[in-house]
């Protein structure tokens, strides 16, 4: 079969993005933070709109109103947990204080899978390409099992299991992502990730950080090269051509962009980093960009997405 390549390109414009971020920041400050949801929506709308696959741009459909509603719900949930732990602190009883702290910690841990599940459903449903929407079809209970098993084993193995946990999570999430009638999957193995992390940690120390550029490249390749998309029985692989030199040059530029402009260069730095990753991605195989059929449902609850942002968890798809 003929191998057709379908590239990803990123076109973000620094000056334009600077304007967007400044307006976002200004309105967020002036409204004492209330605008944050709208700012997030605009930010994603812009970045998705500047990302192109096979000649067509992505669209982010999420709105500030949806994200604000989600934000209010997410705040209520987190606030309730904080209140429980605070009430425990002020009760004067050590047992109750301990109990409050325990409820808080377990609550936050349980929130992680809920946030990932809801966040991914929302984010995928609100993303489209050529009018075809993405979707996440994962099951919350199965995700819970993976997370609980992963967290416990990570604790018992003093962190060693975390590579396998990360990999299992990624495999489960990605295998449940659809673009219309196309299905994604992830073929990475926990052992490979462990080895990359192990080498990354030790060689970076021994080479005084120089190996870091290879480490970042390896993580990038692990994440992208193991991703697949299946269209009508045809399996195509994503491929990243990121080289350690790219990481070095981009890192260098980003560092100076941020430091020497007292932070004003941040928008350019963000775009630069996105371009480094995205411009190096392509899809290999007989993928037909004209034959994707709409299948996914509309889903507009942004609570999970806001929880993710609050817990500072990034979904790097």
């Amino acid at each position: 079969m003929e191998i057709v390549s379908t590239k990803v390109n990123f076109y973000g414009d620094g000056a334009k993005y600077f304007g967007i971020l400044i307006v976002n920041l200004l309105l967020t400050i002036v409204t004492l933070g209330l605008y944050y949801a709208w700012a997030r929506a605009k930010n994603l709308q812009y970045l998705y709109g500047e990302t192109e696959f096979a000649g067509s741009r992505f669209t982010f459909h999420g709105t500030g109103r949806e994200m604000f509603k989600g934000f209010v719900k997410a705040i209520a949930i987190v606030l309730m947990l904080i209140l429980v732990s605070q009430a425990g602190q002020f009760s004067g009883s050590k047992v109750i204080a301990l109990l409050g702290g325990l409820i808080y910690t377990i609550g936050i841990l349980l929130l992680i899978p809920i946030a990932i599940h809801g966040g991914l459903r929302y984010r995928m449903s609100r993303t489209s390409w050529r009018g075809i929407h993405f979707g996440y079809r994962g099951d919350l209970k199965e995700l819970f099992d993976i997370c609980i098993k992963g967290i416990l084993l990570t604790i018992f193995t003093l962190g060693i299991y975390s590579s396998w946990f990360h990999c299992n999570l990624r495999r489960y999430l990605e295998s449940n992502i659809r673009l219309g009638n196309c299905k994604f999957s992830f073929e990475g193995k926990g052992g490979d990730l462990f080895w990359i992390n192990f080498k990354g940690l030790f060689l970076s120390i021994f080479t005084l950080g120089i190996y870091l550029f290879w480490y970042i490249r390896n993580l990038n390749h692990y994440s992208i090269n193991n991703s697949r998309i299946e269209q009508d029985g045809n399996i195509c692989s994503f491929k990243s051509s990121l080289a350690p030199g790219d990481v070095f040059v981009t890192g260098f530029i980003i560092y100076f962009l941020v430091v020497f402009t007292l932070g004003l260069g941040t928008p350019w730095a963000i775009l630069r980093q996105m371009r480094m990753v995205l411009d190096n991605v392509e899809l290999e195989g007989a993928f037909n960009p004209d034959a994707v059929i709409q299948t996914e449902e509309n889903y507009s609850d942004a609570t999970g997405d806001d929880l993710l942002s609050m817990l500072d968890i990034g979904l790097d798809f």
């Binding site: 050529r130 075809i132 219309g180 960009p289 004209d290 034959a291 059929i293 709409q294």
Partner: peptide, 10 residues
């Protein structure tokens, strides 16, 4: 033109 049913651009 994309009709919202398929990714084929007409």
């Amino acid at each position: 033109y994309f009709d919202g049913k398929s990714s084929a651009g007409y």
